[in-house]
Design a binder for these strands. Sequence first.
RNA 1: GCGCCCGUAGCUCAGGUGGACAGAGCAACGGCCUUCUAAGCCGUGGGUCGGAGGUUCGAAUCCUCCCGGGCGCACCA
Length: 550
Amino acid sequence: MTVGAERLREALRGVVEALGLKVTDIWLERPREESHGDLATNLAMKLAPQLRRKPRDVAQEIIDRLALPPGVVTRVEIAGPGFINFWLATGAVADALRQVMAAGVAWGRSDAGGGRPVNVEFVSANPTGPLHVGHARQAVLGDALASLLESTGWRVTREFYYNDAGQQIANLVQSVQARIHQLKGRAAEIPAGGYHGEYIRDLAQGYLATHPEDPEASDLDAVRRFAVSELRQEQDRDLQALGVKFDVYSLETSLYTAGEVERTVNRLVAAGHAYDQDGALWLRTTDFGDDKDRVMRKSPDKGGEYTYFVPDVAYHVTKWERGFTRAINIHGADHHGTITRVRVGLQALEMGIPAGYPEYVLHQMVTVVKGGQELKISKRAGSYLTLRDLVDEVGADAVRYFFLMRKSDSHLVFDVDLATKQSEENPVYYVQYAHTRMAGIFRTAGLDPATMTGAEADLTTLREPEEQELIKRLGEFPGVVAKAAETLEPHRVVAYLEQLATAVNRWYHEHRVVGAPPELERGRLVLARGAQMVLANGLHLLGVTAPERM
RNA sequence: GCGCCCGUAGCUCAGGUGGACAGAGCAACGGCCUUCUAAGCCGUGGGUCGGAGGUUCGAAUCCUCCCGGGCGCACCA
């Protein structure tokens, strides 16, 4: 919500109706160029073709018919090819600050979700090793998206899915077993497709220390339970270090033990979309737009197991049956091939799940650069930068901020040297510093900012251009949050915060708060509090701290 | 070969459901600290928006083709 925009939009809508025309959406935004006013609309240019008149003439008629509430707009002009530009009254701006203060920490919240449930699944790493920087991007992205959805009225469940069954786990177990044998002085090889990281050795030692009854590691199931449990705990600790928490952890193995996989296959067969060929059980996914049919159960000579596609579908059935009418999955872009398969599998069940279920947010890969050199990420080779390394080195705030700066479908170069610098080159500090400065004002004034309500001053005293600009920025915040949540693009909030911080720093630099004439000082204290609050609200949405001092 | 994503300033990236002269940060250069933290502020230079067509009053944005980079196309997960 931009300052004054709603009332103006209503007035414009009234004109359109009076003209007997239809426009679904009235574009009314803040122009990039300051000399184009506070708000501008292209409405006349949109209507001109329908009316078969020149855009500027239409603009004039709109202005003539416009019934504006008093005290909102001080000036209107027709510009360029037919834009209508509006300038807002100081009083309207002061009103906006009052609204910000009245809402407090709730400023930015809205209710598009209406309390409906949404499941946000992210990270979902296999428990075969520590989390790496790609997981870090996903963890931060998913957590921020979840927060954005919460802020816009959705009831969010953060969920982590473990692929703790299948070949990769078998490889893990054999790798650990091989290391145990080596520790015992016997020749053993890490199997093909196995894991070579140092952590495998740690797991081997850990197993021997806790399982004296099995010094030969012959109980593969015990090795599996131990290794998976240890790795899950480590992943959990690392995520906590990043400030990411989950509400629900789902295990692939439990889909099997609970019979969900079997049940899903039976349903697919019953729905009539399955067939046998070459000894395998296939799903005719081409009925639903897939480019080829998919195997659900391998032929006996290939092992006779279910392919990974079946538990994936079964898992999403459980999401649906748990009441999640909306589900969002965050995955690396290398998973985009699974999107069609999962959706098509759900369609083939014919149980009323919408075609676009679940939604996907894909993110591109992360390249880590340190000392001008790219660090290769290879879990199997064992040489890679973990999420934990990154957090230990640059701090959770910088990690989160860096990963949220860019839209998810852009490749991201994480410059460790830059993020490590505790200096002005590091952008996260810019926003945090603006917050710190606001906190500093209240320290100097000897006031508790939390007690400010907005009622303690005449806010029309805030007439300086930097003040008007800052208040307008504060007013934009809810609209930015709503848009970021709607488009599932947290980087919009980062961009907004940098603009807000710029407005804050400019104002702070130009005008003193403490020591200004009493009436003005009171007004400026309110503005300082408003700015501090919105900065904090925004940073918290991203999971970044808003420090009082730096 | 087919599909998806990306190609915007020296670097990293915004802007992309069409709109007013293309933006930010960093890097470069020049100013500003007896005052609420200079982790800041102000200013200067810097771009054929990968290329070519097309649609439009108007294209970085939409369509087609091409070039370049990434990823995916298994009875692997």
